[in-house]
Structures are given as C-alpha cells and as structure tokens.
Design a protein around this nucleic acid. Sequence first.
DNA 1: CTGAAAGCGCTAACAT
DNA 2: ATGTTAGCGCTTTCAG
Lengths: 330, 330
Amino acid sequence: MTTIKDLARLVGVSHSTVARALNDHPAISAAVKVRVRAAALERGYIADAAARALRVRSSALVGFIVPDIEENDMATMAKVLAESCNAASRQLVVSCSGDEPERELAHLRALLSARAAALVLMPSATPLPETLQLAERLPTLQLVRHAGRLGAEAFMFDDESGIREATAHLLALGHRRVAYVGGSEGISTGAARLSGYRRALRDAGIEEDPALVSTVAPHGPAASGAFRRVFEAARPSAMVLGGPRITLGAVEAIREVGLDVPRDISLVGFGDRAWMRWWGPGLTTVALPARELALACGDRLVALLRGGTVEPPAGLFAPTLLLRGSTAPP
Amino acid sequence: MTTIKDLARLVGVSHSTVARALNDHPAISAAVKVRVRAAALERGYIADAAARALRVRSSALVGFIVPDIEENDMATMAKVLAESCNAASRQLVVSCSGDEPERELAHLRALLSARAAALVLMPSATPLPETLQLAERLPTLQLVRHAGRLGAEAFMFDDESGIREATAHLLALGHRRVAYVGGSEGISTGAARLSGYRRALRDAGIEEDPALVSTVAPHGPAASGAFRRVFEAARPSAMVLGGPRITLGAVEAIREVGLDVPRDISLVGFGDRAWMRWWGPGLTTVALPARELALACGDRLVALLRGGTVEPPAGLFAPTLLLRGSTAPP
DNA sequence: CTGAAAGCGCTAACAT
DNA sequence: ATGTTAGCGCTTTCAG
C-alpha cells in the first residue's frame, strides 16, 4: 500500500506537504498540489482511514442497529440513511440484533470500538441497561421505537393516531364489535397502537370488550391463531390489525377459515404493500410514511455530523388510512 | 476514552502487559489477567479498533456493495451475510450503488480506505474498469451477478435453467406462442434468462418469434408497457417473466387490461413473494434460493477471513418452479 | 512471565 | 509555502 511518505519521496517534498496537498490545504501552492495529485493517481494511493481515525479520534462510520432488516420497511430506511451518510462522506454499518438484547449490546460495543461517529438505533423490545448507558457515548437517534430511559431523539410513526383513525373509520361505518389484534404492549409501538384503538372506542362512547382484544408475538402463525381465537370467541364484525406480520397472519387465517371480506368481516391492515391493492376486494390499510421518516432522520443525522447546533425536535410521522374494499358497513 | 495505558497505571503493570492480558495471551499469569479485566470492566474500557487496524493493517469490516438493497432479496442476503460476519467478529458495511458505476467505485474506494477485510459485490450493470481493478486488491466475492472481467468467485442463481424450466413447462402444457419479457441483456442475469428461454424453445424445436420477446429496463412501468406491447402485437398464449419487477409490472398491466389468467394467458412469474399465493388463481413462479445462496456466500466469506486455504468453487444455485394456478393448457 | 521500545500512517502544532 | 516533530492507541519484537 502506498503511503504519503512514498508520495513525498516521489514528488520530492515532505510527507506533511503531501498530506496538506491531498486535503486541499489553502497554504499549498497549486504547482505542488498538481504534482502530488498526479503521483497519488499514478500510484493508486488510497488514504488509510484507520490512521486518520486514530488521529482525529472518530471514524467515518455511522452505526445502524435494527432488530431485523427484512421487516418494517427497514431496508427502505437503510437505503435512505446510507444515502444521507454518503452525502456526508460517511458509511453506514448495518447490524441486526434479532431483537436480542445481548446481540444489540455486542453490536453497539463494536461500533463504539470503531469510534463510530453516530448511531441510529431501532431498540430491541427490552434493551439492556448497559446498552442505554453506552448509547450515550455517541450521538444517537432512535428510529421507529422508543426505548424508555434512553434520552436520545426519536423519529417515530404516530402509531396511536394511525390505529385510532382505522378504528374510528370502522366505527363510523356502523360497526360496534371492532376487534384489535396487535403486537405486544411491551414494545413502545405495540402500546401506542393499542392505546389508539382504545382511544377511538372511548371517543365513540363504546366500552371495551376484552374478548375483542389480543396482543401476541409478531409472527405470522401467532397472529393467525390470535385472529381465529378472537373471531370465534367474540364474533367481531370488524377488525384492526396492529402490525405488518399480524396482517400477514390474519390474511392467512381468513384464507384458511374461508371468510368473505368484507361480508363476514371488515378488515384494516397495517403497513402498505403492493399486494394489498390486489388482495380480494383490496385491503384497507394504515400506510406508514417510512421514506419520509428515514429522510428526516437522515437529515438530522448529517446535521449532527456537521456538528449541528440547532436542535430540531424529532417528529412524529402520521400514517395515512388507505381506504379500499375490505371495509364496509356491517 | 480509557486506553490500555490508563488501565496499566491503574493495575500497576506495563501497557503491553495489559494488551496481552486483554487478548488472552498465554504468557500472562492468571492473576494479572483477572486484575486487568476487572479494571477494564470497571472503567468501561473499549479497545480502539482504529489503532488496532493501523497496526495489523486490516480492519474488522466487510464490504457489501449492491445496486439496491430493497430489490432482489438483498435485504435477506444482507441479513445472512451480516450474521456470518458477526460469527467471525466482523461487521458488514452495506452500500447501495444504485447501479451507477461511479457510486460503485466510490464505495469501493471507501472500503479500501477502511482496509476492509473482504468484499461481497453484486456488480452494477457496467462496472468501471477501475472498479474491477481495485476489487482485486481485497478478497472479493461476486453475488447474483457476474462482472465479465472480474476474476473473483461468483455465487449465482442458475437463471438460465430457471427460465428454461418455466418455458418448458408452458410448452409441455401445449403452448406454442410463449412470450418472454425480461431485463436487459447487458446484465449477466438478463442474458442468462433470455438464453434459458431460447434454449427451451430450441429443445422443443420451436423457432423464436422476435415479436414475442422484449427486454426492458427492470422497472414496473417499463415492464407494464412491454407486457402490453407484446401481448397486443404478438398475441401470445403464455408468457414468462424475467425478473421480480418485471413480474410486478406485468401483474399491473394484466389488471389494467382486465385479462383473465390463465384463460386469456398463462403466466410464470419470477421470484417468490407471499402475495403470489393469493394473487388470482395463484401465480406459478420461479423461486430463487436466496437464503441458501447467501448462506453459501457467507460460509465462503468466513473461510476467506480465516485465511482459508481450500478453494471450494463457487456454486450455481438452482431455482425451483412453483406450480400454481396461473399456468394451464391453452 | 513481564517491561521497554519501536512503529503502523496520518494530522497538526510549531518552526522556518 | 513548506519542513520538522510529536504523537494518536495499539501490537509486537526483543530483552530481561
């Protein structure tokens, strides 16, 4: 590997002159810059980021820790964030925690070790105290989920209002037995969504029937089971789904049971996918502005990296209710 | 930030002893190791990866450059590869080239600068010569696509056989006017798929009708247009789709035109998604073993990182034809 | 078993 | 405008 000293020898200047020329330092003559750059090009010189990081005590890396990059539009967000990072000459390091607190911590440690310049974190369900504590060591942004004691700025969907609107829509259609199947209350998003459902009921002056509500692990099979249990035990005329995988599971269950939507039941899904437009009568769904969220987070990220002084409060991103054929009067 | 010198002072040994203790060097007494580790824990010591990388001239980073992480099961593969990397105490740096040769090169440069230990590359359509040349500087694995002059091992789907089987299936059903709409021949996958289509025709002794074939940019709208053009101009009784986005576009066009599948046309999609099971009569499709491919690539990666001596030739991963309701006799 | 010392490639005072 | 010099934190001989 060619170093600045090699180039210095080649050009006949000192290695610090080479460094300055390469960094376009104002106090270096144009002539020298030209010669240095020519030499660098010729030798295929590529600066050693480690040496630089050692000096300046910070690297070009930005960490991105998420439970699962295949879920929750995380691939989209990763792409957007990577874009923002590149615009700021940074690189995004993606790690999947699998929602396991230990792996989450391990990844954070690795990023700290690499002296990452910042961290974007979608916290696991129950982050370890040490994770929260270590996250304070570098500029951190929370994404999608909010970890209780972590003070970092959060970029989140307005899950509560999204589910509230969905529920209110069904109520307005005349449904009185509206069920809700969603993810665990232990996660910030799960809690917010359930609370949105409850709010809509309260606003409509309807008392909650516990048999109509089920919170489960966000897996297809679990959701399928929950759907069938709630459907058979409580005979809802409509249902709100509280997550993308819950929606997948419910659709699966509807197929197995052989229900007709919206005749047998009105349905509101969560998240938006192309197939929802084609599915049966079209699936009414709560669409999340994932791209917008990630863009805002990316903007904030580069501001942080540039040593941004202003503190634009992190926002809440409102979902949109996409009305399609799966919801109708009872 | 705590350094080994801080710990050395704290414990009352030299900093090199601390370094050895932390790295579990055999020639350090158990007693010292215990004390050093206690001190490290107490002070929340986290080693500086840059300093280490500077010494050992290689980092814990593995690069992953792909055109688009939202496409082609790349999120799945990223997850699998990240997993493999973690198992080898490495971190995966994900970069999206957007299929733009310049950005691809820029990302490669950044990885080289970070002294990445290896690179997994899904090449853009037309990589710059310099990209190919620089990729030689570090252990490189090609994924999904093959860049002509790059000598690196490649992990690819057997696109040709996948499309050949799909076409043969339609021919066996009695179709004689089987169309093909796929991605550009300029990309290795596009060329292989088209060649699979041609091979099936040849095997069946059928002459190719150019009006039945169209290669386009892999975007929904372009694919929609191509579908309609081919359908209207050449009146095929069946069609093979040569890519995931092509499939999406075709489904869209079928909806717009109001065709009945398989009555008006038999259809074979590309890639497998949950909605394909639900779509109309069920979409017969060419399913790619993305997970298997990524796992194999990950295995090879850790072998490389461990300084693997054996040279297991990279494989070709055979797709499976998933038979569903969208294909029927004419 | 442990310590002293050198040096990885780069940046940034501080000279000149 | 350029050169000299001193490290950044770690690994790794080489001595003891």
